[in-house]
Write a protein that binds this DNA or RNA. Structure first.
Length: 297
DNA sequence: GCGACAG
DNA sequence: ATCTTGTCGC
């Protein structure tokens, strides 16, 4: 009955070290700091600036609803040996080469922990919103929500208990990546997997220290936390998802899942660098475009 | 002022 | 995101 959307008091943020100058009791949700895409605004189209302002407010509201606690299904999913079968979905959108509008949105659902494809859906879509770093959700989320509703309504038995999104969760300038948008809007556990570290002004860099940490990743499953150098916020983890991967993937919770659970789930779904749900959604949606979209339909 | 910017 | 050839290695 208590459907509290407030982050748990236990979800403390790891302060990187020494100084008592900053409260260590701060929860992620309480941080309203906007470590951000500063300099780019001057070169941004005025029309887009207005859109940005509006979107920033929406994200601020959305952020209040994020929970970094494990959903009960997520706990069962990761702890139960193999008594039950759970489902994990992967979403991705592939684009047409010179086309800024036409694309293919995909949802591939895998059984867990056995990782078999049980459901897939590919939809030709038309993007209407622009891509602005930090606002990816506004460009893609409507279509992902539609994909989720499709399974839930037409193939309920394969409705995923958790969804993996191509992009970030709380590893985001305002703590509201697209995985957070999807999770909150659907009220379903979601997490983000990014192939590249999202630069966050004055907090997260790919400096030499980061490169050293990457070099320290020895075997599959090794991780290191992504802690903001100035905020102390723990955004997620860099994960060496498989033995052969040189570059890690960046995992961060979107909603109703903890950093550790999100990371474990991604690792357990990884046959290659990119976890199967997302990888399959990516590969198959590209193939879908190649076959079904010949420059006109 | 420039540069750093998931997909 | 997408465009690209070969190349090194198991």
């Amino acid at each position: 009955m208590e459907e509290s959307s407030v982050p748990s008091p236990e979800q403390k943020v790891a302060a990187s070290a020494s100084g008592p100058n900053r409260q260590c009791t701060e929860t992620f949700g309480e941080d309203d700091g906007d470590r951000n895409l500063s300099g780019s605004e001057q070169t941004l189209d005025p029309a887009l600036l207005e859109i940005k302002r509006k979107w920033e407010l929406e994200q601020k509201e959305l952020k209040k609803k994020i929970s970094l606690e494990d959903d009960r299904n997520v706990e069962k999913m990761l702890s139960n040996p193999d008594s039950d079968t759970f489902y994990v979905g992967g979403m991705d959108i592939s684009f047409v080469k010179g086309d800024d509008v036409n694309a293919c949105a995909a949802l591939v659902v895998f059984s867990f922990p056995d990782l078999e494809v049980v459901y897939e859906d590919y939809q030709m879509i038309q993007l209407t919103q622009p891509y602005i770093p930090g606002f990816l959700a506004f460009r893609e989320m409507d279509f992902m929500i539609q994909l989720y509703n499709n399974v839930k309504e037409n193939n309920t038995q394969y409705t995923p208990q958790v969804i993996m999104v191509d992009g970030n969760g709380i590893l985001h300038p305002r703590g509201v990546g697209s995985a957070c948008h999807l999770g909150v809007l659907l009220d379903v556990p979601c997490l983000g997997v990014a192939k590249n570290l999202f630069f966050i002004e004055n907090d997260i860099d790919r400096n030499e220290e980061h490169m050293e940490q990457i070099a320290s990743l020895k075997q599959s499953g090794d991780t290191f936390p992504l802690v903001g150098s100035s905020s102390g916020i723990t955004y997620g983890k860099a994960l060496k998802s498989c033995e052969k991967a040189t570059k890690p993937v960046y995992v961060s919770p979107g909603h109703k899942i903890s950093i550790d659970s999100a990371t474990e789930l991604v690792h357990r779904c990884s046959k290659y660098r990119v976890p199967e749900p997302i990888r399959q959604a990516d590969l198959n949606s590209r193939e879908y475009l190649r076959v079904n979209f010949k420059d006109g339909s």
